[in-house]
Amino acid sequence: MAYDQTDAVPSLAARLDAELRDAHPLAVLTRAYETFGDSLALVSSFGAESAVLLHLAARVSPDISVLFLDTGMLFGQTLDYRRQLATRLGLTDVRDLRPAFADLAVKDPRSDLWRTDIDGCCHIRKVLPLDRALTGFEGWITGRKRFHGGDRLTLPVVEEAEGKIKFNPLANWSRAELDAYVIEHDLPAHPLVAQGFPSVGCWPCTKPAEDGDDVRAGRWAGQEKTECGIHVARAPGLAPNVGGDI
């Protein structure tokens, strides 16, 4: 489904959010797929909480396009989990997005940019690859939830972002609801969860969290940074492949 008028996307996002703001995540995903079909993508880290959203999406359509950001800095356990979970759920279109060789050669030739410029590292390894991949889609799905805190506390179920419709089906769900779904459907956990990682990203910037810590406390610990950049609003008129997180 295409939208020719530039003001159609914000108005569609507002209508869908009004319709779905209290809906079950499965209903949100079903409506998203009915609206966009092959022009809909699900972005997944295959991290600690990813199994629930992927399982829900597979119930709607195992052929949905799943975009996985393979930054080159992921834990080996995450790569194994990505393969095992995709097979278990019958997902047929999981695409591995990797940073462009030219970007790495110019900006991070020694793979140590994370030591001096965390935002810059995320930009070339996550933001740019995803921006390029999303050019072929009109809508996309994230796994963000309000209980993560920070800027996510006011997360809508449907929003407009960079001229696309963005669905957050799990925005309303609590930790308890996620855990209950995992138990009900016997979903496998990310291997690092048992080692104290409630949230899993790239190995240089992810640490175990202490009991009672915020679920994302181990991400960029000791830094002011709370988002990798793919969910950061861009300045008006800024091209998507330029980025607004740096």
Results as ranks from 00 to 15, higher is better:
K164H: 02
G196P: 15
D179N: 06
P191N: 05
D186F: 01
E177L: 03
D179Y: 02
E184G: 14
P169M: 06
V158A: 04
N168H: 11
A180H: 08
F197P: 12
L170N: 10
N168M: 05
Q195M: 15
V182R: 15
G196T: 15
N168T: 06
N168W: 06
K164G: 02
K166I: 01
A176S: 13
V182W: 09
I165P: 11
P188G: 12
N172M: 12
G196N: 14
P169N: 05
A171R: 08
D179S: 07
A180Y: 03
E159Y: 00
Y181R: 08
A171E: 07
E184W: 08
G196A: 15
E159V: 00
Y181E: 13
L170S: 10
H190Y: 12
R175Y: 11
E159K: 00
F167Q: 07
E184M: 14
P188C: 13
K164E: 02
E177V: 03
K164L: 01
E184C: 13
E177W: 01
E184Q: 15
P188Q: 13
I183G: 07
P169W: 06
A189I: 02
Q195N: 15
I183Q: 13
F197G: 11
F167W: 07
V158R: 01
R175G: 11
H190K: 11
L192M: 09
D186R: 03
E162V: 01
E160K: 00
P188H: 14
I183N: 09
F167P: 11
V182S: 12
E162F: 00
P169I: 08
R175M: 12
L170K: 11
G163F: 00
S174R: 09
L187G: 09
D179L: 09
I165K: 03
L178K: 12
Q195K: 15
F197Q: 12
D186E: 03
P188R: 12
S174E: 08
V193A: 12
L192W: 06
S174N: 05
I183F: 05
A180W: 03
A189E: 12
E184Y: 11
Y181N: 10
A161G: 00
L178F: 14
V182D: 10
L192D: 08
D186A: 04
Y181Q: 11
E177M: 09
G163Q: 01
